[in-house]
Simulated scan of single mutants.
Amino acid sequence: MRNESITETVVWAVAEAKGVDPLDLDAPLYDSVDPDALQRILDAESFEGQIGFSLAGCDVTVHHDGRVVVAGGAEAAASEPSASPVSQG
Rank of each mutant, 00 (worst) to 15 (best):
M1N: 02
R2N: 09
R2H: 13
N3Q: 12
N3A: 15
N3K: 10
N3P: 13
N3H: 12
E4S: 11
E4D: 06
E4N: 14
I6K: 04
T7A: 09
E8I: 13
V11W: 06
V11G: 01
V11H: 02
V11D: 02
W12A: 07
A13F: 13
A13R: 11
V14R: 06
V14M: 06
V14C: 07
A15D: 03
A15N: 05
A15T: 07
E16V: 03
A17I: 05
K18Q: 07
K18L: 12
K18S: 12
K18N: 14
G19H: 04
V20G: 06
D21C: 08
D21I: 06
P22D: 05
P22H: 09
L23R: 00
L25F: 03
L25M: 02
L25H: 01
L25I: 04
D26I: 10
D26V: 05
D26N: 11
A27G: 01
P28K: 12
P28H: 12
L29K: 01
L29W: 13
L29N: 06
L29H: 04
Y30D: 15
S32C: 14
V33F: 15
P35M: 09
P35C: 10
P35I: 10
P35W: 14
D36G: 08
D36L: 13
D36Q: 13
A37Y: 15
A37K: 09
A37T: 11
A37P: 00
L38E: 09
L38M: 10
Q39S: 15
Q39D: 15
Q39W: 14
Q39Y: 12
R40Q: 05
R40P: 00
R40F: 08
I41L: 11
L42S: 10
D43E: 11
A44S: 15
E45S: 13
E45L: 09
E45C: 07
F47G: 04
E48C: 08
E48D: 03
E48L: 14
G49I: 15
G49S: 07
G49P: 12
Q50W: 11
Q50N: 09
Q50A: 14
Q50V: 10
Q50I: 12
G52F: 08
G52A: 12
S54N: 01
S54G: 01
S54R: 05
S54P: 01
L55Y: 08
L55G: 05
G57V: 13
C58Y: 04
C58P: 00
D59I: 11
D59P: 00
D59T: 06
D59M: 10
V60R: 05
V60S: 03
T61D: 01
H63Y: 09
H63K: 11
H64I: 12
H64T: 14
H64M: 09
G66W: 11
G66E: 06
R67G: 02
R67M: 11
V68M: 02
V68D: 02
V69N: 02
V70D: 01
A71N: 05
A71Q: 07
A71E: 04
G72C: 02
G72D: 01
G73M: 00
A74T: 04
A74R: 14
A76G: 05
A76H: 01
A77G: 08
A77L: 09
A77H: 06
A78D: 02
P81Q: 00
P81L: 00
S82I: 09
S84V: 02
V86E: 02
V86H: 03
S87H: 09
Q88F: 08
